[in-house]
C-alpha cells in the first residue's frame, strides 16, 4: 500500500491497474490450479472408457426403447391408479407433517430468535436429517416398518424437515432487524414478537418453500417406491421386473406430466406470494 502512495510521483502514463484476484497470493493460486489439473488428469486416466462396450450399448438401447412404444395405459390400469393415488397422498401428508414439524425447529434454529443451546440442538436435527439421501433413508425405513407407503411417508417427512427447517431458519435470520426491534420495544412477548415481527416477514418464503417441497416430494415418491416405499415408484418397479416395458412407459409418461404440472403450479404460486 505504501508503494502506491509514493507512486504518486510516477508519470500518469506509467500507472497500471488490474482487478484484485480471488486468491491474492500468486503462488497459492498457481498451486491450487495445478493440483486441480493433476487430479482431474489422473481421474480421467483411471476411468478407462471401453468404447467397444459403449458402442454395443446402442442397439440394446434401441431394443429397450422400442419396448416402450406404444405405452400401455390400460392393461395395468388399476395398479397404476392405485400407485398414483398412493404417491399423491403420501406426498401431501409428508409435506404437511414435515412443514408442521419444521416450523418450531426453524424458529429454534434461527440465532436471532433462540438462545444458543436450543439453536445448537435444532441445527443438529437439521444437519442430521440432511445427512443421508432420501433413498438411503427409505431403505432404512422399509427395513424398520416393512414395505409400503408408510415407510415412504416417514422418509419424505424426514427429508422435508431437513430441507424446510434449514431454509426457513435462514430466512428468519435474514429478516429486517429494525421491524423486529420495533415490536420488541412495545413490550410484546416472545410469541407475540414471532407473530407480529417474524411471521409477516417470512410468510412469502414459507409458502413458496412448502409448495416447492410438495413438488420435490412427489418426484422423490416415485424414486423411493423403487426401494419398496410404496407409491407409483413401486408400480413402476413391478412393471420393470415383469418386463412390461409398455406399462412402464405409460407410468413414466404420467410421472413426467404430473411433475411438469406440479412445477408449473408451484412456480405460479410462488410468483404470486412474493
Amino acid at each position: 500500500m505504501t508503494d502506491h502512495v509514493s507512486d504518486g510521483l510516477v508519470e500518469p502514463s506509467q500507472r497500471t491497474w488490474a482487478p484484485p484476484r480471488l486468491i491474492p497470493n500468486a503462488r497459492l493460486r498457481w498451486f491450487i490450479a495445478l493440483a486441480i489439473g493433476l487430479y482431474l488428469a489422473a481421474a480421467f486416466g483411471t476411468l478407462d472408457i471401453n468404447w467397444e462396450r459403449v458402442a454395443e450399448g446402442w442397439p440394446r438401447a434401441q431394443r429397450f426403447f422400442s419396448g416402450f412404444v406404444p405405452p400401455d395405459f390400460l392393461s395395468r390400469q388399476g395398479a397404476i391408479l392405485d400407485g398414483l393415488l398412493e404417491s399423491l397422498w403420501m406426498t401431501a401428508a409428508a409435506t404437511a407433517l414435515g412443514v408442521l414439524l419444521s416450523i418450531p425447529i426453524a424458529i429454534g434454529g434461527a440465532r436471532n430468535a433462540s438462545p444458543l443451546p436450543i439453536y445448537m440442538a435444532c441445527r443438529a436435527v437439521m444437519a442430521l436429517s440432511r445427512t443421508f439421501h432420501e433413498v438411503l433413508i427409505a431403505i432404512f425405513f422399509v427395513k424398520l416398518f416393512g414395505f409400503g407407503p408408510f415407510a415412504g411417508m416417514a422418509t419424505l417427512t424426514l427429508a422435508t424437515v431437513g430441507f424446510y427447517a434449514k431454509l426457513l431458519a435462514e430466512d428468519i435470520e435474514a429478516i429486517d432487524r429494525s421491524q423486529a426491534e420495533a415490536i420488541r420495544s412495545t413490550g410484546a412477548s416472545w410469541l407475540q414478537w414471532l407473530d407480529y415481527a417474524i411471521r409477516p416477514q417470512v410468510r412469502p418464503r414459507a409458502i413458496g418453500l412448502a409448495v416447492y417441497r410438495l413438488d420435490i416430494n412427489f418426484r422423490e415418491s416415485a424414486i423411493i417406491g423403487i426401494v419398496g416405499a410404496g407409491g407409483i415408484g413401486a408400480t413402476l418397479n413391478t412393471a420393470f421386473d415383469r418386463y412390461e416395458f409398455d406399462t412402464a412407459a405409460a407410468i413414466l409418461l404420467i410421472i413426467i406430466v404430473i411433475v411438469m404440472a406440479a412445477e408449473y403450479a408451484s412456480g405460479a404460486i410462488r410468483r404470486r406470494v412474493q
Binding site: T186, Q192, Y196, P200, Q201, R203
Partner: peptide, 30 residues
Amino acid sequence: ARRHIGMIFQEYALVERLTVMENVLSGRLG
C-alpha cells in the same frame, strides 16, 4: 416497563407486510 416507553424509529421500522391498523395495534401488544 417497555409498555410505557414509546419508540419512533429511523426508516419507520413498520412491519411492511402488515396493514396500517395492525401496525398501530402492535403498540398494544404489551
